[in-house]
Design a protein around this nucleic acid. Structure first.
Length: 592
RNA sequence: GGCCUGGUAGUUCAGUUGGUUAGAACGCUAGCCUGUCACGCUAGAGGUCGUGGGUUCGAACCCCAUCCAGGUCGCCA
């Protein structure tokens, strides 16, 4: 049987030469040199150690094994005659006197090579995730995740937040994303739902008198995946503070995050407190996005008055946005490539011209710009060597397309983007209401839990028609890092009366509030503290810190894009008996 | 659900205008090699070219359908 290890595979140094040690690990590689000598690479969680097998019997044993078998080895540490400075244990090797096979690998061909698993087909990686994770480079991201979560817990605890767990089986919420439902055996025809977020529970904790709550909270939403969004489940650093303002939340986050980003991040520079605050409207106007990447120094200018009448068809009667890029060196082909990417991603065309080194308007839609050159140069502040990216459309389309263009230009021009840092900002003053695209009616813009800025007074003014409800903002904020939205948060609406008035503006009433959020509404009628919170996504934080493009790289056992676990084979069918107990009959419609 | 890209050996990929026996690297098997460390050298095994249909004397290649994967948009209060 297995004995205790005396050392790990990453531990031995020249100082241990002469000692007898016991190691255990995976047989990563065997290099046979001559008929009577083999070098074996033994790998465990901590590192690799070279074994030298000279004993004919042990050599025969090694040769009979497949790679990735697990071994326990006892032997003497010896100084290498040819050292390997690239390895921490490269000065020594272990000469085994005893080798015990702990777990034989029955496969002489693996689904992929362990050390190159990142290049393998993703389905294969996920199906054999336990092999994929043997790759130190893959494992490293999971270790990072553990360290970051531990650091977040430590920092939150140091700020006097209590970690409180909330139910996983709860009630379906009428707002938000699609729920995951769980049939209730004891209540035929009824369902639990997995929480989309512990939103209502944390607000109820505030109402219960807890002052500072946090949780590394599992959240479940049945929505399609994205590169930066895993399907089904994800984790948030969920937090809430009683008797707190927006400023109180900001100062906690500004204290907790930068040191963790600087310590664990791929880049070790992070914004210092206070983070920049950008109003929602300003963000859309200046960056064409509500999640601007502030590492890019380019901004969007309005050119509607300047170019709307220049004669270029697509600008006619539309809002026009311009992005001026100084010292631009891209080729015609590269510009076309950028415009194509803009169109693919935004669904709208990007246009351009250049103000070249000789001070001439050239390229793209130059024909329409040249006649009003002086005016354009002055208004946009052009200097020779400029590129000007242009977008047009209804206001929001022109803004968003410009935002995409800005990101592409930033990525293309190293002189306009300093990648190697974490740039935080707060987006504030979100509108409370919007006109729904489908309904054409006034709707909540984000969520009805937020406190309207100005409270009851502003709502009453809107009800009396003194102000446009579209101009009411909410005490709501987004935390953005490097163009990634890490989180939304808000000062919550803790006052039943304000809640009802807020709902009435969108044509709902007291009954709707009570029906949708019965527990919270009732709780608030017993005297609730004003409270505020936020819930940054842990997966996205780790992604940013690891510098990974895919969320799956930082999740131990991720599902694929179609919300399947191909390793465990979930979702899968269940037995008739299980369905019967749950009072469920499966009725699949024939595919048309 | 829409759009884009891809699917060829265990793995990663190449495959010209439609034309002989579909190639390479890594891995695997065997042999050689006494200091390797991405060990090296020699030989070998390994393929329903995602699936189904069509065009053609002839299809990995062209057409249609379909499945799968990744990206992207919708969606994600």
């Amino acid at each position: 049987m297995i004995q205790s290890r005396t050392h790990t595979c990453g531990q031995l140094r020249i100082e241990q030469a002469g000692q007898t040690v016991t190691l255990a690990g995976f047989m990563e590689n065997v290099r046979e040199v001559g008929g009577s000598l083999a070098f074996v690479v033994l790998r465990d969680f901590y590192g690799i150690t070279q074994l030298v097998v000279e004993d004919p019997q042990l050599l025969a044993l090694i040769k009979s094994l497949n790679k990735e078998s697990t071994l326990q080895v006892t032997g003497v540490v010896r100084e290498r005659s040819s050292k390997n400075p690239k390895q921490p244990t490269g000065d020594i090797e272990v000469v085994p006197s005893q080798i015990q096979v702990l777990g034989r690998c029955r496969h002489n061909e693996l689904p992929f090579e362990i050390n190159h698993s990142r290049e393998a087909d993703e389905t294969q990686r996920l199906r054999y995730r336990y092999l994929d994770l043997r790759n130190p480079a893959v494992k490293e991201n999971i270790i990072l995740r553990c360290n970051v979560v531990a650091a977040l817990r430590k920092a939150m605890t140091a700020h006097n937040f209590l970690e409180i767990t909330t139910p996983i089986l709860t009630a379906s919420s009428p707002e938000g994303a699609r729920d995951y439902l769980v049939p209730a055996r004891k209540h035929p025809g009824k369902f639990y739902a997995l929480p989309q977020a512990p939103q209502q529970f944390k607000q109820l904790l505030m109402t219960s008198g807890f002052d500072r709550y946090f949780q590394i909270a599992p959240c479940f939403r049945d929505e399609d995946a994205r590169g930066d969004r895993s399907p089904g489940e994800f984790y948030q650093l969920d937090m809430e503070m009683a008797f707190a303002t927006q400023e109180d939340v900001f100062s906690v986050i500004e204290d907790v995050f930068p040191p963790i980003f600087a310590k664990y991040g791929k880049y070790n520079i992070a914004s210092k407190a206070p983070f920049r605050r950008i109003g929602f409207n300003e963000a859309m106007e200046t960056y064409g996005s509500d999640k601007p990447d502030l590492r890019i120094d380019l901004t969007v200018q309005d050119a509607t008055d300047l170019l709307g009448g220049c004669g270029f068809g697509p600008f006619e009667g539309n809002v026009v946005k311009a992005i001026v890029v100084t010292d631009f060196t891209g080729t015609r082909k590269q510009i076309d490539g950028l415009c194509t990417e803009v169109e693919i991603q935004s669904g709208n065309k990007g246009y351009w011209f250049r103000y070249d080194e000789q001070g001439e308007i050239v390229g793209g839609i130059a024909k329409f710009i040249a006649p009003i050159k002086e005016e354009v140069v002055k208004a946009l502040g052009l200097v020779p060597g400029c590129f000007v990216g242009l977008t047009a459309g209804k206001k929001s389309a022109a803004q968003k397309t410009a935002g995409v263009f800005r990101n592409k230009l930033g990525a293309f021009c190293p002189n306009h983007m300093d990648r190697e840092k974490y740039e935080f900002c707060w987006i504030v003053d979100f509108p409370m209401y919007e006109i729904g695209e489908e309904s054409g009616q006034l709707e909540f813009c984000h969520n009805p839990f937020s406190m309207p800025s100005g409270g009851l007074e502003m709502l009453e003014k809107a009800h009396r028609g003194e102000i446009d409800p579209l101009r009411i903002t909410a005490d709501q904020y987004d935390l953005v890092v490097n163009g990634v939205e890490l989180s939304s948060g808000a000062v919550r609406n803790h006052d039943p009366e304000i809640m009802i008035r807020a709902f009435q503006l969108v044509g709902l009433g007291e009954e709707d509030v009570k029906a949708k959020f019965p527990a919270m509404y009732n709780a608030f009628t017993y005297g609730a503290p004003p409270h505020a919170g936020i819930a940054p996504g842990v997966d996205r934080i780790v992604m940013l810190l690891a510098g990974e493009e895919s969320i799956r790289e930082i999740i131990p056992f991720p599902m694929n894009k179609n919300a399947q676990d191909v390793m465990m084979d979930a979702p899968g069918p269940v037995s008739e008996k299980q369905l019967e107990e749950l009072h469920i009959r499966v009725d699949l419609e024939e595919k048309a």
